[in-house]
Amino acid sequence: MSISINLKKKLKYFDIDISCECPDNSMLVMIGPSGGGKTTIIRMLAGLEQPDEGSIIYNNDIWFNSSAGIDISPQKRKLGYVFQDYTLFPHLSLFENAAFASKNKSEVEKLFDLFRISHLRNRKPRQVSGGERQRCAICQALARHPKILLLDEPFSALDAITRRGLREELRNMKGEFDFPVIYVTHDINEALYLADEIIPVVQGKIDESWIARMTERSDSGNRILKAAREQKIALAY
């Protein structure tokens, strides 16, 4: 059981051309410099942008296949998507937001307990902190029982302490996700901390030399390689 991705798309300054696979119970982290096409890849996975060519296959379900003319709408892909910054609906309370796509209110209550935001259930998004909003956004995505969870730099707008706390919470919870999780970040520490598998994406492609270049420039690349050995992270390139 996995999601397999093979996508091509022409962008203004470079082309995206990427193939990878992410199994259930696994977190694939796409790392790379900003503006390298990571968000576009995630958006294509969600069905919010159309690839020029390729395929997205979740188990045996074809979500996208350019040669067969198949393009399943985002509504039907049944995925969880946590955006870069706050996309909670401002007119709804946090609980209404999280329960937006869920019929099971008690499950949303449980998620709120798990993410320690039950006491904020009646507050509007503007009345809570950035970290609390992102906790709610994750609850919203999980309450839908997604087939796959996409997280697009979900903690990048938060301060360092909150970011570290949420990163820890996510890692502790990771074992309970029985679906593939694809996480996009440009933060090497975040990638090392969370990933089961890391893919370096530079200018829309998996760039094998990126680690080596990072190694030359700083010790970040070394840290990735060391962590990969210690934590058994499969470097996908």
Binding site: P74, Q75, F83, H91, A101, R144
Partner: peptide, 27 residues
């Protein structure tokens, strides 16, 4: 309206019609 709100509604399974009534109009 932030375009991402509309996209979030789509990802959460709302049709274009429901998104109009449940997200666009109230905001």
């Amino acid at each position: 309206i932030d375009r991402r709100l509309i996209e979030n509604a789509y990802v959460l399974g709302l049709s274009k019609y429901s998104t109009f009534f449940r997200v666009a109009l109230p905001n």
